[in-house]
């Protein structure tokens, strides 16, 4: 029989909770649920340390625990391969779409954050460090 584990919001980052206040690079404050693709792009443009990149979801596999998934991304023009293991409710920001997770129902339950289903082929916002001079 399936065993459902109780939600453990304390173990999750607090800033995905609906209503959380996010400060953009220009100082503007927005709620997490109101963020747009342009907010990430513009913040990265004026950041001295970070630049924005696109990460395409290539695979989504089961993780080591029942609530975890391993997501393989292809990052940037060089298609660098990056794998991250996250909880199924962990939201990623998809270009032109907004917040998406592997289990949007659980994300909405835990964070009250509206989410789409994260799928192979989705292009997520990611960051790289600017080259140090």
């Amino acid at each position: 029989p399936a065993v459902s584990s109780p939600p453990s919001p304390v173990a999750l980052p607090p800033f995905f909770m609906r209503g959380s206040i996010i400060q953009l690079a220009d100082g503007e404050l927005k709620r997490v649920e109101d963020l747009k693709t342009e907010d990430f792009i513009q913040s990265a443009e004026i950041s001295s340390e970070l630049k924005i990149d696109s990460s395409t979801v290539e695979r989504i596999d089961s993780g080591q625990s029942p609530n975890a998934v391993v997501i393989q991304f292809s990052v940037g023009e060089l298609k660098a391969q990056v794998c991250v293991e996250v909880l199924v409710e962990y939201p990623f920001f998809v270009f032109g779409q907004g917040w998406s997770s592997c289990c949007p129902d659980r994300t909405t339950q835990l964070f009250e954050l509206s989410c789409a289903k994260l799928c192979v082929g989705d292009v997520c916002v990611s960051l790289t460090l600017r080259s140090l001079r």
Partner: peptide, 25 residues
């Protein structure tokens, strides 16, 4: 008097879960 509770403010980049490998310009 009750001090208003300060609302936490999170930086925008904390929402992006990983830093991809640095690429040369």
């Amino acid at each position: 008097n009750v001090e208003p509770r300060s609302v936490p403010v999170f930086p925008w980049h904390s929402l992006v879960p990983f830093l991809a490998p640095t690429q040369s310009d």
